[in-house]
């Protein structure tokens, strides 16, 4: 996978647009899973995914290949998602009357018949702080080594491990009713 990525990145850096499209196609699901789990909103996740790939296109020449291309993309996606969450947090302090008419929520589960457990997991994961959410997603679902997560987040490996342990503890407490 990463080997494919490298070849495509090299071509895309030389201006081959179809190689960039292939990179988008290869990495879309992983990036979408991360931004979706971080924001918990499908529409927002789709917008963030688009922004992530657009940023990647603009900055592609600056990618030196020191890390995996997917790690580089994860970092962009994570930063985008964190910025979005910060903005959202800031907006939550603005009184509703000043925000105008509220849009209806499209935050519906993918599958209407989704079980209670699935909703509880989404809720529990969603309640984690952004950094822990990212670390948990990348480690648990994407099975990335701590070292790579450390490169993506720019934090030390031990800090990542501590955050992961904290995230697990929180999830364990929140999901103990399902035992």
């Amino acid at each position: 996978m990463e080997q494919d990525n490298y070849e495509l990145v090299a071509k895309a850096q030389r201006g081959d647009r179809s190689s960039f499209d292939d990179l988008v196609r290869i990495n879309k699901d992983k990036m979408f899973a991360l931004v979706y789990r971080m924001t918990g909103n499908r529409d927002v996740a789709l917008d963030l995914l688009q922004e992530t790939f657009f940023t990647a296109f603009k900055e592609l020449k600056r990618f030196r290949g020191d890390a995996h291309f997917s790690s580089w993309l994860y970092r962009i996606a994570f930063n985008r998602a964190v910025n979005h969450l910060r903005r959202q947090k800031l907006l939550s302090f603005i009184p509703i009357s000043k925000m105008g008419k509220l849009e209806p929520s499209y935050d519906m589960p993918d599958n209407p018949g989704l079980g209670e457990l699935n909703s509880a997991i989404e809720k529990a994961v969603g309640s984690l702080p952004p950094k822990q959410k990212m670390i948990f997603t990348l480690r648990f679902y994407e099975q990335l080594p701590f070292k790579e997560i450390s490169m993506i987040s720019g934090k030390s490996e031990s800090a990542i491990k501590t955050n992961y342990q904290k995230a697990i503890e929180k999830l364990r407490k929140q999901l103990q009713d399902f035992r």
Binding site: K28, D29, F32, A33, Y36, R37, R42, A45, L46, L49, D110, N111, L114, G115, L117, N118, I121, E122, V125, F140, Y141, I168, L171, R172, L175, F178, R179
Partner: peptide, 16 residues
């Protein structure tokens, strides 16, 4: 932890 692992893996993977 094993139980939690099992539960968390029950969650659907968001697919585009």
């Amino acid at each position: 932890l094993m139980e939690l692992d099992k539960y968390l893996k029950c969650g659907t993977t968001p697919i585009i």
